[in-house]
């Protein structure tokens, strides 16, 4: 149990660092809200190695901390909506079985974008954002795949982390 708490701390720190690194990369694809989601590597790792509960906790802690440190009130709401929906989709697919880490991560990437879009629609009270859906779906798929490949490689090398 003590080991789990320690690991959770390490993963929280790692997720925060990834969030910070991401703010340093000036990604602008002409589409609002599109980013790599590096911290999601850690979320996937925790989901596979520590469990669903821990992954949820880390998601919320990560969003709140990085939001207060590098973002603002708005970025917290968007990230939270995206993060929770993304993790729910990933947990569901993982429990369902038959999906690889990449598949689970792809679902996470796509639903992260859907969650953010839903909040955007509520905030600006317009449906015209719905026209970002195809771009965000495909973008989420590719970033999810990349994150999945990275997480898969890390999982292979973190075999002793189960206790």
């Amino acid at each position: 149990m003590r080991g789990r708490v320690a690991y959770f701390g390490v993963f929280t720190a790692l997720a925060l660092i990834f969030s910070y690194v991401e703010t340093l990369i000036p990604f602008h694809f002409g589409i609002p809200g599109m980013k790599l989601g590096l911290a999601n590597i850690i979320i996937v790792l925790v989901l596979y190695r520590l469990g669903v509960k821990e992954a949820y906790l880390l998601s919320v802690v990560r969003v709140l901390l990085s939001g207060f440190l590098f973002g603002n009130y708005f970025s917290i709401i968007y990230s939270l909506a995206g993060g929770i929906l993304s993790l729910s989709a990933m947990a569901l697919l993982k429990r369902n079985g038959g999906f690889s880490v990449m598949g689970v991560s792809i679902a996470g990437g796509v639903f992260h974008n859907i969650g953010q879009l839903a909040v955007a629609m509520l905030v600006v009270e317009t449906f015209s954002v719905i026209y970002y859906v195809p771009v965000l779906l495909v973008a989420g798929m590719f970033t999810g795949l990349l994150i999945g490949i990275a997480a898969n490689e890390m999982l292979k090398r973190l075999v002793n982390l189960n206790d």
């Binding site: 038959g98 990449m102 798929m141």
Partner: peptide, 16 residues
Amino acid sequence: KTGLKKKDWVLIMIII
């Protein structure tokens, strides 16, 4: 080669 399973491909197809 890719490590992707059948269900992964189905998911990708659905998204596309």
